[in-house]
Design a protein around this nucleic acid. Structure first.
Lengths: 191, 191, 191, 191
DNA sequence: AATGAATGAGCTTTCATTCAT
DNA sequence: AATGAATGAAAGCTCATTCAT
């Protein structure tokens, strides 16, 4: 970690280039050009083109998670928390839609375990949110395994946002998607 | 469609090779070798390597959709239909887990529209299922837009199955995942 | 061996290029340019740049051995045979001096066994020559192991020729080198 | 020669690395790592990677020559001297077999003259040995040019040792190789 | 329709060398 | 004298695609 700046420059450039060209078409030569470093410098910080993908995914998920956490107030009602989470998920998905698809595809190729590991803190955080809501009596208590529900919850929100922004790419429908998702979740979980 | 047999051989070989090697590493030369045709023959049936992906996806989705449709009886209660759909989705996902991730990634790169189009009949079919259930008074009638709900429904089931088979890859947990998914959906939609 | 012509073209070009540039500096791109084939074609006939070296060595040794064999009459006296062999060795070494050094160095890197294998027929042929001369009573019969003597004999002739053409590169001294070598061998072996 | 210690460390490391990896594969970065100096330090003592080869060769030949000289007593009979020289040559070749092939190949590429120059003192020393033996009437006096005979003599001994240790690599045959070589030389030169 | 040898653009990666500190 | 991060040219090799047969 001699010079964090340089690694970061490369990573940032890589996110841009990968977004624009897709992972297959992206050339390291473009990445380094945009990062303003020499070709060889790339290999001081990353072992290969492939090894960029987890690094990008990590950064993205971290930003994403940080943003969502920051939007949620722990003390509020679960109902409001859901609304905030959905809003946050849609916001973040919109911002990173290109790269998210990319990461998904990049990791699908060989790094499913990595992906799972990166989501771990997010899962744990939602686990806790759910557990507290159960304790407060806000949501049903017949959940067999909280982790599974957390995954369904997160999966559903992301699925909805991806449907909207990746496939429909229709911002006018945003409200409908969000409301339907919130309603879906609230009914599925709340008493 | 002069010689359906040859096209099908290539497609089947491609599904195998793509599953084994991933989309990037897969070589046309391996596909044709396994299909038992010459290198050039490939280009009589497909315009490029890329063009294989939608073709694979199409075939897979068709099989998948056919299987699910066949499992569902139109006259039964929505509750039973959900159960059957979840079962079917898990079954199909398990069978094609490798290739599904692949297709997802392959299409994510450049063909999101295609993907959407391929899902069209599936969406329509679920739309109708939901509409009938609304008519029968089995599920809530405050659904703003049926298509959005269909997407959420399908997305949730696939998400759950993928979580189970792609990430956890833990067949013992299957029952828990299924039950939780069914419970989730029933509560979300039924009166 | 679909098209021997193309492989041969590449091999011939490689011998030229390798002679001019040395093995390290030689570029495959130059080889194919001179051979008049595409870059990729090279890899249809050779698996790598490295794999050219044994192929070149093989061809060279074959030519060399063929030439030497053709110069020697089996029925003549051993004394005359030695003279012819030395002459032939010097002739051939002179002709291929560039590439011989090259092969020697190229094989020294990783393929000593190959080198030994390529010499096998030459060794056997000299073995026989010596055996016959022993039978005819022309050379001393206290040779412990004919193969060792064959190797010494061949090694000495090549060493002498290489000294002359690679290091001294002085054609005026040729006669002296040859005469001394012949004298050396005759005394060493003949009764 | 500001800091002989550092130069020597690099040289010693280079001999090791070159022996293990061969000259092409050997990396300066490995050499400096093993020498325990920084990458840039290398270029304070050597102008390039290529320039290492003559330096290595020089050191090796010096050691080799020193060892051989030390084994030979000037006053003894030529017959005994030959025996000692052959023994010494085999010993040294065995010890340095890896690096010798390497040097040979390394110099073959571009530095034949260097190689010749490095051998100069060895040639001169053998010249003198032979001259003295002629004077003492131990070997035949019809040698046309002593230098040529010295080269043949040295070449033959090294050739034999290399055959044994580089190609056969069969220590059991050592005695046969040595005896045959000694016999060969004695007959070739002695009255 | 079928073949498969030939193509060649273009990629990643390596590593000797430099130079600011 | 010493460092080691940074450089960037250079090359081996791959593989989707073409085309003469």
């Amino acid at each position: 970690m001699a010079d964090p700046t340089k690694r970061e420059k490369i990573l940032a450039a890589a996110i841009e280039v990968f977004s624009e060209s897709g992972i297959e078409k992206a050339k390291i030569s473009d990445v380094v050009k945009r990062a303003g470093v020499a070709q060889g410098t790339f290999y001081l910080y990353f072992s290969s083109k492939q090894s960029l993908v987890p690094a990008i995914a990590e950064q993205l998920l971290e930003e994403q998670f940080a943003y969502i956490k920051q939007q949620i107030t722990p003390e509020t009602r679960f109902e409001d928390q859901i609304q905030s989470m959905v809003e946050a998920t849609f916001t973040v998905t919109k911002r990173y839609k290109q790269v998210l698809a990319l990461c998904y595809s990049g990791l699908a190729i060989g790094g499913l375990i990595t992906w799972e590991k990166l989501y771990q803190p997010y899962y744990e955080w939602v686990d806790q949110l759910l557990a507290e809501a159960v304790n407060r009596g806000e949501i049903r208590s017949n959940i067999r395994q909280i982790r599974v529900t957390s995954k369904l919850l997160i999966g559903l929100m992301e699925e909805a946002a991806e449907q909207l922004y990746l496939f429909d790419d229709n911002d006018e429908q945003a409200e409908i998607y969000k409301q339907e998702t919130i309603e879906f979740i609230k009914r599925a979980l709340m008493k």
